[in-house]
Simulated assay, not measured.
Amino acid sequence: MPHDAYRKIEAGTITIRVLREDDLPDVLNIECQGYSFPWSESVFRGCFRPDYRLWALDMGDRLSGYAVVAYMAGEAHLLNLCVAAGQRRSGAGRHLLRHLVAESARDGMSQVLLEVRDSNASALDLYVSEGFSVIGRRPGYYPGGQEREDALVMALPVDGRSSAPAPP
């Protein structure tokens, strides 16, 4: 199924849909709120390709989060997931994560991989609570102030042959 043919998921005031290039001004605003070293517009533009899945999370009529996932060698690699500052700890990030995991399974991926800053306790808590486990460490992976910061590599096996649960 072509990426743009994926269905739109709605749950209450949350809608998950395919991210569009015209969403980039809002994406960049959220990105700058969420990260000390945000991705540039050109990095985001480079993600609009057939082997990537880009998801937008709308709350009401406003873009409130996004996820960027690369499909490589039968694995889904979550490259970026960010929720607007005012929507953090609302369950929006969990909803978006569950959606991309379910879609990865439907697309036949064997697992979802990600890197997370060792110091990002809230993201680590989310990923562990959703079944991800630490499978490695990448020393100096993330830029930091005076020194670079390690990333924990996490994985969640998914069975693309069965029907994955839909987000709640």
Rank of each mutant, 00 (worst) to 15 (best):
M1L: 10
P2S: 11
E10N: 04
A11Q: 04
A11N: 09
G12Y: 03
G12I: 01
G12E: 04
T13I: 02
T15Y: 00
T15G: 01
T15I: 01
R17C: 00
V18Q: 05
R20C: 07
E21Q: 15
D26G: 13
I30H: 09
E31F: 12
G34A: 15
F37T: 10
F37A: 12
P38F: 06
W39I: 02
C47L: 07
C47S: 09
R49D: 03
Y52V: 02
W55L: 15
L57Q: 00
D58F: 00
D58L: 02
G60M: 03
D61C: 08
R62K: 11
L63M: 01
L63W: 00
L63N: 00
S64W: 00
E75I: 07
L78R: 08
L79F: 12
A84D: 08
G86L: 14
Q87W: 15
R88M: 06
R88N: 03
G91C: 13
A92P: 13
A92T: 02
L97D: 04
R98D: 11
H99P: 01
S104H: 04
A105K: 02
A105V: 00
D107P: 02
D107K: 08
G108F: 06
M109F: 08
S110C: 09
Q111K: 15
E115H: 11
V116W: 10
R117H: 03
R117A: 04
L126F: 11
L126W: 14
Y127D: 05
V128Q: 15
E130G: 02
G131E: 06
F132L: 11
F132W: 12
R137Q: 12
R137K: 15
R138S: 09
P139S: 06
P139M: 05
G140P: 11
G140C: 08
Y142P: 02
G145V: 10
R148K: 14
A151E: 12
M154K: 12
M154D: 00
A155D: 10
A155S: 15
L156R: 10
P157D: 07
P165T: 04
P168L: 13
